[in-house]
Design a protein around this nucleic acid. Sequence first.
DNA 1: CTGAAAGCGCTAACAG
DNA 2: CTGTTAGCGCTTTCAG
Lengths: 354, 354
Amino acid sequence: MARRKQTVTIKHVAADAGVSLQTVSRVINKEPNVRPEMIERVQTSIRKLGYVPSIAAQRMGGSHSYLILALNDRERTIAGWQSREGTDWVDQMLLGGMLTCAEHGYRMIVELVDTHSDHIERELLGAIAALQPDGVILTPPHSENPLIIDLLVDHKISFARIGSIKPGPGFALTMDDERAARLATEHLIELGHARIGFISGPDDYELSGWRVDGWRSAMAAAGLATDGLLAHGDFGYASGTVAARALLGSTARPTAIIASNDQMALATLEFAREEGISVPSDLSLISFDDTPIVRFTHPPLTAIVQPIAAVSARAVELIIAERAGTAEAVETPIVVPATVVVRASTVPPQPDRR
Amino acid sequence: MARRKQTVTIKHVAADAGVSLQTVSRVINKEPNVRPEMIERVQTSIRKLGYVPSIAAQRMGGSHSYLILALNDRERTIAGWQSREGTDWVDQMLLGGMLTCAEHGYRMIVELVDTHSDHIERELLGAIAALQPDGVILTPPHSENPLIIDLLVDHKISFARIGSIKPGPGFALTMDDERAARLATEHLIELGHARIGFISGPDDYELSGWRVDGWRSAMAAAGLATDGLLAHGDFGYASGTVAARALLGSTARPTAIIASNDQMALATLEFAREEGISVPSDLSLISFDDTPIVRFTHPPLTAIVQPIAAVSARAVELIIAERAGTAEAVETPIVVPATVVVRASTVPPQPDRR
DNA sequence: CTGAAAGCGCTAACAG
DNA sequence: CTGTTAGCGCTTTCAG
């Protein structure tokens, strides 16, 4: 490969291969109706000259931008980065999304948007105009935002909605939060727990409701009551403490608690320690996130593993397939199931020693 | 702001404002020699139409791409994401870099490159040709890679080298690893420690050497010996265990250890626990990274805080300033100092109870 | 199956 | 200070 300081364009390749611009373009884009022998000739020149198409120029010509936007909530994402609480949602998205993009010659750009609906339209419109992405990946709590969805539909941009089960435009992908909550609850029931508390997430996340539903249905299926066993949180540490206090301060306190995310689980763990409630012997605990930290607590927490990387990868694949016209018919919503990883924080309930 | 489904281009703005294309272009790019009244008129139209320049088209016109590439080592980055060990290097880079980019209308794209030099040239050339970034941020262990640097210089692309103190092309930015190691060592010396062990990082990271140097110089300044107190690691957990065993198994075992990164610190902590060596009463421990996890261990670890976000932000600013021609003369290397955060893992040495 | 022409949205260089 | 003229590198027509 010659080391060229100057940019090598499609022209140089065409000249080198002795064909027209157009033929080169066809080869690059794997279009049909080119003789194999031409393809070979062109590709040899491409390799020889070290040619790589300019994304900007491709975009200008009216084709793909080869860019996929991953939309995340600005406030929460930045707060997560700044607090350094170990939430690796963005990393997992990049792991699944960026690598899958790379496989297809696409790039992923992370974009942060305000929840505040006033800004969101302007911001998204700006990002679309500036980048003209081929696809967009929506994440909670924006996955069902009608403003965003309408905008994307209007602009004919493929998109995926992660954490959504609603039919409609765009690919809905879910980790089946309800089922995940059910699995976690069943795990505790199997261990012999009957009073299983649940700390919910905030209402602006649809998945908060699903998780509660899963817990409820598992409890109901086992003939267990849920009265006084639900506490509300907002995914923040402080709210977890409040919820833990409410749950553990009650007369018939639960022998196990499921928290809707890691921070609330950590808060519960800490509150229990302060109160002299030993985990796991006095209280079993499950986190709904398997973020790095929950493996390093004492005890390490049993947790629900959200396959974020896998979902992101799938989302990218669907978007690219749709644009390529190779989209298979997919069942909506696409389910990439969460799993439970059992660690040391869940054991059978001990005889009450209070 | 009108909700236009069709793209609004510079033409529409020009027509709406009753000026030429060029005038609009000048306003967008804040070029001089435009009457304030024209500027006002054009900007009104821009707002009214909700116009946002297309990056692709800007790039085609021969101007900025408004893209900055953040180059990270592929293997290590992916390993970090997959292992979910809580390293938030990429997140912190995004926090500092992406937000600073956004302030200036730029975007940051994370790009992974192979260390293997055979691929690196091809990959980087490809990324440059495809994206035509305005700037590149190099991170260890690539910050002083001559292949990359030459390539960037040839292509006249601004770049910053994070974790480098070497003069030369591109902005060198350092968190002053030597000073950081010195600070950590001094903290231990002040507590009364005399036998302070050090676990180094791998040699392909230049900073590994600096950290050792800082430890050595602080020890020397205090008149303390370092014989038998240095163990080599490779930033991996397993290597930390080996190093801890070497250090703690010796006859005159250290009363304190500084590990060159968090995984090796965690390994040391675990090894100590297994050996019945209590941290901090029998052994003080400092990690060289303040990743999320070290706050959640027992005890939480005293650590050196790498201001990765701040450095990334500075790198972006320098690159943008250089391209804008507003670059101030900067002292090279630019130092963004690390600090030490004291937690529960460091206390004065206890009388030997063995 | 291949080529030639036109234009994507923008900026650089030049005139006025 | 402003407008006009050429492209940038590529893809889409549409002819051969």
